[in-house]
Design a protein around this nucleic acid. Structure first.
Lengths: 315, 315
DNA sequence: GTGAAAGCGCTAACAT
DNA sequence: ATGTTAGCGCTTTCAC
């Protein structure tokens, strides 16, 4: 039941396999007559070119690896989907690898991608192990970070400083002075670090203080999932959102926009992130490892909904 | 900058490439001394086996294709994630392909998977084009459907009849007699058809009637996303859920469990679905195309929350 | 315009 | 225990 090969097609159409190869790849110098015969044979035999063999001989693949922390988070699900669409448009396929945020899984999945000789890797998640990054860079693996940033690699991300500044400024303008930062283990460590850092800075600028969750009148979450979890937790504990405490998220997932949730959030431009990520990666593949790292910084946008309101004492 | 090959390793460690191959694959008959030398060479050279070449010569891959309709739907995102984990556990990798529910994209993505010579395909989405299925079957492609069913292929799914019966019976017991069925284009056509059919049957059994959305006191949705959209729509139109109309979903996504949403839903056992899907596929790969198609029917579970209540006139 | 031949990097008999 | 050899299915010079 072995699949037919290019040789079978050659035999059946009475030409050599090079000629078959030429017509299949739309190569040059093929007489219409021969072309027809070959195409007929292809159809009759149900021939399907072996991509593995082709990639082996070409010594390059048109596959892009996508490393993601949590596919069950719709923000990443959608990003993966957009990346795939984008990649398809330019003739690439993608392989998505879920890491559950575990560094050892991340390393293993990347290793597997490299053994498959992917043309490059887009990382939506990056455990932050600098060693891994250095190794990849040293290996000359084309890399692009989407949604987080690192000086050493090409990145497409949102301006994290502005992002959390937007959130904190919004809360401050509503009179909040004691703001908590909420996160979870599923948040990519680097992203988390960046967001927390800028949260702290923005607090300083706006003269608010970082407070523990129990003592805060508002919470800024590392992402929308965390924000929604916080709303759940708060209301379970009898504190109303936004009446008792305001909550703002980050990402702009669809669920945040539901009337029942109404999460004020800092939305990321997902389409643009995906587009920039693929573009950066392809250009990196083109340019080689020596070219300087580039950074595409997109603007996040504050979407105000009903999870934030004036601090109580101000009413 | 070409990567080192097995030959480079052989040369550096002063053995033949078969010996290198043996130690790398943990093959037999390798003296500890030679083993050490080879491993050293591997490390020094930064050698990484070429999976493409290996798969080509083995004439089989350990890659499973996963075809999914909408990765941005967290139910599918999670399913893909679980499938990947499961597959990894048994030595396989997965490559997920998003189709956006479009049959032509579905066909194209499957074609690409086959050219990559995937060992088999798990379909979470199936456009329902019988022709495509027949073709795959005729080609002897190992196939497993997860979440939908077809007599011709191995399937792991929830008992759709029971699933919607659960929903309708629940609504009927609350006094609802005019129930609408809600769906959307993103719902896999076959799944949609199956659910609607059993909805109709359950209505007959419970003596309810299928009603248009505007005239219904309750709505059964094809999945949780649709259900949540319906809640949005209804409340935007000024009809409260569950006070004016009850809504029940299907799938059991995390968001349904949020207190703010509180969606009564028919939950699918996602872990078990993923596990069964992978198991069926592997057994199919093992058994060959001739073996009879198998069906794993799992029990859905009604999770009652706050989106359903007694029909008003009954109070 | 078409074919013959030389690999791509690897595994698996079969020798030794 | 290790080496030799013959491919896996394809692309690509280079002849004809």
């Amino acid at each position: 039941v072995s699949r037919p090969t290019i040789l079978d097609v050659a035999e059946r159409s009475g030409v050599s396999k090079s000629t078959v190869s030429n017509v299949i790849r739309g190569g040059p110098h093929v007489s219409p007559e021969v072309q027809r015969r070959v195409l007929d044979a292809v159809r009759e035999l149900g021939y399907r070119p072996n991509g593995l063999a082709r990639q082996l001989v070409l010594r390059r693949t048109s596959t892009i690896g996508v490393v993601v922390g949590d596919l069950a988070n719709p923000f990443y699900g959608e990003l993966v989907k957009l990346l795939e669409r984008r990649a398809n448009d330019v003739g690439y396929t993608t392989i998505a690898s879920n890491t559950d945020g575990r560094p050892e899984r991340e390393a293993a999945r990347i290793e597997a991608l490299l053994e498959q000789r992917v043309a490059g890797i887009v990382m939506l998640q990056f455990s932050g192990s600098g060693a891994l990054l250095d190794e990849l860079l040293a290996d000359g693996v084309p890399l692009a970070l989407v949604g987080s940033t690192d000086e050493r690699v090409d990145c497409a991300g949102v301006d994290e400083t502005r992002g959390l500044a937007l959130a904190v400024r919004h809360l401050a303008s509503l009179g909040h002075r004691r703001i908590a930062y909420a996160t979870s283990p599923l948040v990519d460590a680097r992203t988390d670090a960046a967001r927390h850092e800028s949260f702290v800075r923005a607090c300083a600028e706006e003269r608010c203080a970082e407070a523990p969750l129990a003592a805060a009148t508002a919470v800024a979450a590392a992402n929308d999932i965390v924000a929604i979890e916080q709303i759940e937790r708060l209301e379970r504990e009898g504190r109303r959102v936004p009446d008792d405490v305001s909550v703002v998220g980050f990402d702009g997932i669809d669920a945040a926009g539901l009337a029942r949730i109404g999460l004020t959030t800092v939305a990321q431009p997902r389409e643009q992130l995906a587009a920039a990520g693929i573009r950066l990666l392809l250009e990196r593949i083109e340019a080689g490892p020596a070219a300087p790292a580039r950074l595409v910084l997109l603007d996040p946008e504050l979407v105000v909904r009903s999870s934030t309101r004036k601090e109580r004492t101000w009413q």
